[in-house]
Structure formats: C-alpha cells, structure tokens
Design a protein around this nucleic acid. Structure first.
Lengths: 197, 197
DNA sequence: CCTACCGATCGGTAGG
DNA sequence: CCTACCGATCGGTAGG
C-alpha cells in the first residue's frame, strides 16, 4: 500500500522550501512539523536530526549535478554546445526543484564536519570539471579568452536570481526565460555573437 | 578625543561579517560581543537590538546605492555607458565593503515589519530605475532587445559570487577582475561586441 | 561596562 | 504518533 509521497519526502520538501525562504538556522522543527501535520517529536520517527535533512538535500543534489556533468562531458559537440547544455541544466533544476537551490547556494554552509568538507570537495570537483570545459573552449578558439574562474562563477551565480524570483506559472514562459538567459550569457562568453538556436 | 572607529561602528562591521559568513539567524549576540571585546549585555549600550544592526546596515546601503544611481542617471552618455557605470559600482561595493552585500543579498529578509516592506520598496525603486536605463538603451538600438527583468536580474546576480569568493589581496587584481567581468556582461547585453575600454 | 538573571524557544529524548 | 519534558542557548533587562 505505498503512498505517492512518503512522509519523509514530504518533510524534505517542506524543509527545502523553508530553508530557501527563511534559511536553515531560522527554520524551527516545530514550524516544519506543523507544515507536514505532525508534532515536532513525531518528525524524529522519519528523520534523525535537523541537520540530517540538510545533509540529504545537499548530497542528493551534488550527486545529481555531477551525474549530469558526466553526461555533458561525454556529449559529442564543441565546447560552446557543452557550456550551453550546462546552463540549461542549471536553469531547469533551479526552476523545477527548490531543493537544488538550497544545496547549491548558501545553506550548505550550515553542514557540520565532516560533511561540510565532503560537500566542499564535491563542489570543487564540479567547478574544476566545468572550468576544464571552459579552458578547452578557449584553447580551441571557440570561447573568448577570459579568466576561467571569473567566467565560471559569473555563469553560475548569474542564474541565482531565479530561485527567489521565478515561480512556476508566473507571467514568463519557461522557454522564453531559458532562451533569453542562455543567449545573453553565451554572447558574453563567445568570440563572435552566437545565437543558441 | 574621538577614536578612529566608534565601538558602534566596530559592532556594525563585525556583525556584517558574521551575517555574511553565517547569516543573521545563526549570529548570536554573545559571539558578536566576543569579537568586539565586550560581554553580550554591554552591546546594548551601543545598539538597541540585534535587528537594529540589520536595519542600519540595510538602509544605509540602500541609500548609498540609490545616491549612486542618481549620479548615473544624471551622467551624460549613452545607455551602454550608464549600464557599465552601474556594473562598476556594484563590483566596487561588493569587493570593498562587506556590509553592502548583507544588505543586497539575503539578510534583508530577516527584517521585521514595517522595515521589511520599506526596504523592499526601496529595492523595487532601484530595480525600476535600472530597468528604465535598460529599456531606453534597447529603444535606442544600443542594447539587444531582451526581457528587461531577465537582463536586470542576471546582471545583478552575476556579481553575487564576489562576496564569498573575492578576498582583497588574493591572486587576482581588482582591475583585471573588474575589466573581465564588465566586459563579459556587456557583451551579453550589447548588439555588437563592444569592449569596455 | 559588568554580574546576575529573565522568559522564550531551540533541537531532541523518554516512555508509552 | 503523541504528551511531557530535558538541558542549552537565545535576545534582552535590572541594577549598579
């Protein structure tokens, strides 16, 4: 008799929303319990601690981003197409899944050791592999020769406004958003103006 | 017998650093007191409450950004030059002053009413006036016709990585950083590739 | 500027 | 899954 969403999943989702809206530290277990229809103490039949929720959200998403990066690395195509694919990935995850944002943005800071160091390592791996794609593109003359770090962090953070601005069903269509945003970023990166379609 | 920095200023600066590093909610008055060499209760001889510190930081910086925007609006020059000037302003404030970041990014969320609404109104004013500059540039054929909101938020958030990455005196020179970053962003925005120098 | 202390709330547990 | 409760810590105050 499986339910569509387990209570555990409901707790993770409510937590992710609250972490995004108020931050990890300002989210109390009592508020969280109320949102899923339990008392605070009953939460602990589903999860071990407040931080375990954060750990699960952070590492689940880290794995997800790394898997998608695997796929992009194996893609046939030049660096421009690979960078474009990664931008689409980030935009899609940011608009579709609140948990990804919590992991990628600020809340991972509240992990305790050794999880904090582990997460930072995964993040560094991701960044280095993304930078490699940028570097190869610059070497091949496909991308403008910029400082790799500046280019990478600017791309990644330029998408961050989506998480507190974009809400599904609002005025803007996701396809328009994705096209304009990727187009704008790719133009800043490529040697000659290139449309993304 | 005036000191170089009043205790009040020292408290604001330590608080801004802690708000940036750990967030408003995870910053305790006892930690903050230790950093400025006082007991927690002695802080209250200088400030009225924890939130008053946040209010002061947020509104001081809102005023500052709005004043600089005034100056840019009065500038002679086309829209491209005005947008460039605003990007330089944001980069400079992000790299020079930690308090500006706290205000502009997430921590203003922790303001209580009516301060929260007041702050959001100032922010909305700033964004609308920035959008007007973008709109005029697009109408004049100087900027690529994009959705104004996408363009604005992408520009503003693309700079956000500076606050947890950039530290003065690190490998990269501020001038190189500023040149590459503004160049990359302006290329994404202008009809024809334009160098910023 | 400090000591002593407040009520409230926190994450989490015992026991059923 | 709940009631009852814990020790710790929170922002802040009284009084000197």
């Amino acid at each position: 008799m499986p339910e569509l969403k387990t209570k555990k999943e409901q707790i993770y989702e409510a937590a992710a929303r609250s972490f995004r809206d108020k931050g990890f530290a300002a989210t109390s277990m009592r508020d969280l319990a109320r949102e899923v229809g339990l008392t605070a103490s009953s939460l602990y039949n589903h999860i071990a601690s407040k931080e375990e929720i954060l750990q699960e959200i952070c590492f689940r998403n880290a794995r997800r981003y790394l898997e998608e990066l695997d796929a992009v690395e194996k893609m046939t195509g030049n660096s421009i197409e690979k960078v474009q694919a990664l931008l689409h990935l980030h935009i899609r995850l940011a608009t579709e899944d609140v948990t990804s944002i919590t992991a990628f943005n600020d809340e991972w800071r509240h992990l305790s050791e050794p999880y904090l160091s582990d997460f930072k390592q995964l993040r560094r791996d991701y960044e280095n592999r993304f930078k490699t794609i940028l570097r190869e593109g610059m070497a091949a003359g496909e991308l403008k020769p910029l400082d790799e770090s500046i280019a990478l962090y600017t791309l990644l953070s330029s998408i961050r406004w989506l998480y507190d601005w974009y809400r599904p069903g609002r005025s803007m269509r996701t396809e328009v958003l994705e096209r304009d945003l990727v187009d704008m970023l790719m133009r800043g990166l490529t040697l000659n103006p290139a449309r993304s379609d």
